[in-house]
């Protein structure tokens, strides 16, 4: 369980988060949505101790993120940041293999290799396994990075806009993969999404943020209503139910 209690955050003098509290139970897919600058990425990076906490507390499975040794936390929680660039000259297999680093620092064991292979298969990277990262397209690189986070084998997976650069086919494939690791593997996936219809189709719970506060929290059916969406995004859109799931026609 991820517990976020009364977290506020300022970047220099600019307040980003105001007294945010949120509990995320174990298991399932939770989507964070909201307009640009709502504080979604900041909240995620605070949970993943990429930025230091200023006020409030965050714990993951009872481990406070600010005092738990990084290596212990890395076995519980994996993060993929938005716009991660890999400067190093690496092959896909090597990059995904880094996901096993928290478990055994030195050589990869046979078990590690099996996990790396499974992660590459899960994200459709097997054919690319010997390619250098810098020769991949943006979408392929994104999948390799997701596979690395997945190979970390943690119960909690935090992904910041992983659908960036992915085409329709791979967006859907990635969301379905995340769904299946949540259902079959019992993992908790917290994902920042801009496409609320992806959230509606694949998430169990949607948390909407605006101006550094949580403004709505519930199932897709609760959140995807014209009134709620207008409150979050600032304009009115049609919501239609197709195949039992609400979809916002925000393009119209």
């Amino acid at each position: 369980m991820i517990r976020i209690n009364n977290v506020s955050f300022k970047h220099r003098a600019t307040p980003i988060l105001h007294d945010v509290s949120l509990d995320i139970a174990k298991g399932g897919v939770v989507a964070l949505i909201g307009p640009n600058g709502a504080g979604k990425s900041t909240l995620l990076s605070l949970v993943a101790r990429l930025q230091a906490l200023q006020t409030g507390t965050i714990s993951v499975d009872g481990l406070p993120v600010d005092t738990t040794p990084g290596r212990d936390l890395a076995k519980v929680l994996a993060i993929l940041r938005q716009d991660t660039t890999v400067a190093s000259r690496l092959r896909v297999r090597e990059l995904v293999g880094f996901g096993r680093f928290p478990h055994g620092r030195d050589r990869l064991t046979d078990e590690d290799h099996a996990i790396v292979d499974a992660a590459m298969a899960q994200f459709d990277l097997t054919d690319l396994s010997d390619r250098f990262i810098e020769t991949l397209s943006g979408g392929q690189r994104q999948r390799a990075l997701v596979a690395m986070a997945f190979a970390q084998g943690t119960d909690y997976l935090l992904l910041d806009e992983p659908l960036n650069n992915l085409d329709m086919y791979y967006s859907r494939a990635l969301m379905r993969s995340l769904r299946s690791v949540a259902d079959a593997g019992g993992k908790t996936v917290v994902i920042v999404l801009h496409d609320i219809n992806q959230a509606s189709a694949h998430a169990d719970r949607i948390v909407a943020m605006k101006d550094g506060r949580i403004v709505a929290d519930g199932t897709p059916a609760d959140i995807l209503t014209p009134d709620r969406l207008e409150a979050v995004f600032g304009f009115r859109m049609r919501v239609e139910t197709i195949a039992g799931k609400p979809f916002a026609l925000h393009q119209l």
Partner: peptide
């Protein structure tokens, strides 16, 4: 040497992989 490999991924990825 292994920590250095991870460090070369950059601060965020390295922190995510448990490097202080």
């Amino acid at each position: 040497r292994h920590v250095l490999d991870v460090i070369s991924l950059g601060p965020d990825a390295a922190t995510g992989l448990g490097v202080n």
